[in-house]
């Protein structure tokens, strides 16, 4: 078990910086998820923590030891890769045992550890099979088993669920989270999928272009995003953001506006305005997506697409004129120039 600390961490390839001096403290036992669009430097950061990539500047600490110059093996971390990195020429048992390659345990102790990990991950009946006989989810569990037997100070996951189908992904999310609860080991987890970030993380670290934009608990980021990017990146469907002007406590869309208003589709309700909506948007419906409990209504406001929510059985027809309202306190405001968050209205 260990903390992970990043101090002004920089990574450059030649003259291009891809990580621009990031700072982060991961507490012991914390489940931190790095999330951001593809190419923002999540993997690079994780790989520097693992020791697979050289650090160009700054420091990485695992526990209170600076590990910049240490080999991966001496950092006592385990990593699970997107394509599992389990070896086709070895059985499941041998693959898991690979995690103990340099361990000084006796043969019996090693075997016991492998069996224990196998049992914990529900792999017992598969231990003597080859990876080619396994499903994607099972392969990923083997990879996790291989990481587990090491009793590492921290687990690093790089997009471990990206190759799985949606259903399996949902299941593995829960399994990994449960595993974290049981083992209590520090986890740094990289994904581009904000749903994974929201559902699994103790803390989300939102990255973009080699910078950390925001780090905080999932709901904290959801409720108080620091800027337009984070606001739109976290939460599905994405937050509606459009320029507005404000007159007497009521906002109305305008281009150019004095401020950017951000309303989550969930907070933008189609139908009668209740008492004193702080923002109303009107437009012609272009699409409806019934989700069951509610229906997403797509319409256009001055040529900009907007998504609102309607109760499941009162969805408007395509082509109909609708008005959607946001209640006071549900509208996020952002500065037009800097895109940074302003106090909410």
């Amino acid at each position: 078990m260990a903390t992970i600390t990043l101090r002004n961490l920089v990574k450059s390839y030649g003259k291009t910086d891809v990580i621009h001096g990031i700072n982060l403290e991961v507490a012991d036992g914390e489940f931190v998820v790095f999330v951001g669009p593809s190419g923002c430097g999540k993997s690079t950061t994780l790989r520097m923590i693992a020791g697979l990539e050289e650090v160009s500047g700054g420091e990485i600490l695992i526990g209170d030891r600076v590990v910049n110059e240490l080999d991966p093996k001496t950092r006592n971390i385990a990593m699970v890769f997107q394509n599992y990195a389990i070896y086709p020429h070895l059985t499941v048992r041998q693959n898991i045992a690979f995690g103990l390659y340099t361990s000084t345990l006796s043969k019996e102790q090693k075997a016991a550890k492998v069996s224990e990990a196998g049992a914990m991950l529900g792999l017992e009946p598969l231990l003597d099979r080859r990876p080619s006989d396994l499903s994607g989810g099972q392969r990923q569990r083997v990879a996790i088993g291989r990481a587990m037997v090491r009793d590492p100070a921290a687990f690093l996951f790089d997009e471990p669920l990206s190759n799985l189908d949606a259903q399996l992904r949902a299941q593995m999310r829960i399994e990994i989270k449960a595993l974290h609860q049981r083992l209590g080991t520090t986890i740094a987890y990289v994904t581009h999928d904000q749903v994974e970030a929201m559902t699994m993380a103790d803390r989300i670290v939102v990255m973009r272009d080699g910078h950390i934009l925001q780090s905080g608990a999932p709901m904290e980021i959801y409720d108080n995003p620091v800027d337009v990017f984070t606001a739109r990146f976290i939460g599905t469907p994405s937050m509606n953001v459009l320029p507005v002007v404000e007159e007497g406590g009521v906002m109305r869309p305008a281009d150019p506006g004095t401020v950017l208003a951000g309303i989550r589709p969930h907070d933008l309700l189609v139908g009668e305005a209740g008492a004193g909506a702080s923002l109303s948007l009107a437009g012609r419906v272009t699409a409806v997506e019934p989700l069951g409990p509610e229906t997403l209504v797509h319409f256009e406001v001055a040529g900009k697409p907007v998504i609102a929510t309607a109760p499941a059985r009162q969805a408007p027809a395509i082509g109909a004129e609708v008005v959607a309202h946001a209640q006071p306190g549900r509208v996020h405001l952002f500065d037009v120039a800097t895109q940074k968050s302003l106090p909410r209205r």
């Binding site: 990593m79 599992y84 990195a85 390659y101 340099t102």
Partner: peptide, 14 residues
């Protein structure tokens, strides 16, 4: 061979 295969082994201390 995907680099992951080799890096996983590197992390395992080979």
């Amino acid at each position: 061979i995907p680099d992951d295969f080799l890096e996983a082994a590197r992390i395992d201390g080979l």
